[in-house]
Simulated scan of single mutants.
Amino acid sequence: MWRISHPAPPLDTLMPAWQEKAAHLTHLVLYFLMFAIPVVGWLMSSAKGYTVNYFGLFELPDLVEKDKALGHQLKEVHEFLANCLMALVGLHILGAIKHQFIDKDGLLSRMSFRGSQK
């Protein structure tokens, strides 16, 4: 919700077009995974017969009927997506470190609240 209401500041650096496209794609995939992983987890829990409790506030309804085989498949998908998220976060961190210490282009400062107010 933050990103929808607060667009990213424009790039101040001269970055090759492929890096800009890779960064944009990485962000899109990160947002997709942050949405998809909990939804697949909810589906998995429903299929395995577990009730999903939202931070102790209320219970979420089951999305699918109890199905052990489906629950196992969804567990595999959930784990795969979580591993993809971890790898992508690692790649994102490495990219930020590269820009900060190798390129020295100040790109890392865009991630702070001060950098986003330009």
Rank of each mutant, 00 (worst) to 15 (best):
G106K: 06
H99E: 10
V40R: 02
L107R: 11
D62Q: 01
H92A: 05
K48F: 07
K75C: 03
L107W: 04
V77P: 04
V29Q: 07
G95I: 00
A82C: 13
L88M: 12
W2I: 10
L33R: 11
P38D: 07
F58G: 03
Q100V: 06
I102K: 11
L74S: 03
G71I: 04
E65W: 01
P61Q: 02
W2R: 12
A47R: 03
P10R: 07
H27M: 05
W42M: 01
E76R: 11
K66V: 06
L33Q: 06
A36F: 01
K21C: 02
Y50A: 02
H92P: 05
E20V: 06
P7T: 12
F113S: 07
H27Y: 06
H27Q: 05
V64D: 01
D62C: 03
M34V: 00
A17D: 06
G90E: 14
L43P: 02
A8C: 13
F35N: 04
P7G: 05
K21V: 08
P7C: 10
L25V: 05
F101W: 15
I37M: 05
G56S: 06
H78L: 13
M1V: 07
H6L: 04
W18E: 09
K75E: 15
L91D: 09
G49S: 07
G71C: 11
L85C: 08
D12V: 06
D62R: 03
G90H: 15
I4V: 14
E59M: 02
K21P: 00
F35E: 01
L108S: 06
I4A: 13
E20F: 07
V29W: 11
L57F: 09
D105Y: 10
L11P: 12
M86S: 15
Y54F: 13
P38T: 08
L70F: 07
Y31M: 07
V77W: 11
G106S: 08
Y50D: 02
K21Q: 09
G115S: 10
I102N: 07
L28Q: 15
V89R: 09
L108N: 00
V89I: 15
Q19M: 13
R110K: 13
V29K: 04
M86K: 14
L94F: 15
M111Q: 12
T13E: 02
M44L: 10
V89H: 13
L33V: 13
I4N: 09
Y50I: 00
K66F: 01
